[in-house]
Simulated scan of single mutants.
Amino acid sequence: MGGRALSDELWSPIWLTIQLAGITTFTLLIVGIPIAWWLAWSTSRWREVVGAIVALPLVLPPTVLGFYILVALGPQGLGGWFGHLAGVRSFAFTFEGLILGSVISSLPFMVQPVRNSFEAMGRRPLEVAATLRASPWDRFVTIALPLALPGLLTGAVLTFAHTIGEFGVILMIGGNIPGETRVLSIAVYDFVETLRWREAHILSVGMLVFSFVVILLVSLLARKSKGRAL
Results as ranks from 00 to 15, higher is better:
Gly3Glu: 13
Ala5Cys: 10
Asp8Lys: 13
Ser12Lys: 06
Ser12Leu: 11
Ser12Met: 12
Trp15Phe: 15
Thr17Cys: 05
Gln19Leu: 13
Leu20Trp: 01
Leu20Pro: 00
Ile23His: 08
Thr24Trp: 02
Thr27Ser: 13
Leu29Phe: 14
Thr43Gln: 13
Val49Phe: 10
Val50Cys: 00
Pro57Asp: 06
Leu60Gly: 03
Val64Lys: 05
Val64Tyr: 09
Val64Cys: 07
Gly66Gln: 08
Tyr68Met: 05
Ile69Asp: 02
Val71Cys: 07
Gly74Ile: 01
Gly77Asp: 01
Phe82His: 08
Leu85Cys: 02
Ala86His: 14
Ala86Gln: 12
Gly87Val: 06
Ser90Gly: 06
Phe91Gln: 02
Phe91Arg: 04
Ala92Tyr: 06
Glu96Ala: 11
Leu98Cys: 06
Leu100Gly: 00
Ser102Gln: 05
Ser105Lys: 06
Ser106Thr: 05
Leu107Asn: 01
Pro108Thr: 04
Met110Val: 06
Ser117Lys: 11
Arg123Val: 15
Val128Phe: 12
Thr131Val: 15
Leu132Trp: 08
Ala134Met: 11
Pro136His: 07
Asp138Ala: 14
Val141Glu: 00
Ala144Asn: 05
Pro146Leu: 09
Leu147Met: 12
Leu149Glu: 07
Pro150Lys: 06
Leu152Arg: 03
Ala156Thr: 11
Leu158Gln: 03
Thr159Val: 15
Phe160Gln: 00
Gly165Asn: 04
Gly168Asn: 00
Leu171Trp: 15
Met172Gly: 01
Gly174Cys: 10
Gly174Ala: 11
Pro178Ala: 04
Ala187Asn: 04
Tyr189Ala: 10
Glu193Leu: 13
Trp197Lys: 05
Trp197Cys: 00
Arg198Met: 13
Glu199Ala: 12
Glu199Trp: 09
Val205Lys: 08
Val205Asn: 07
Gly206Arg: 06
Val214Cys: 01
Leu216Asn: 08
Leu216Met: 09
Val218Gln: 01
Leu220Ile: 10
Leu221Cys: 13
Arg223Asn: 11
Ala229Thr: 11
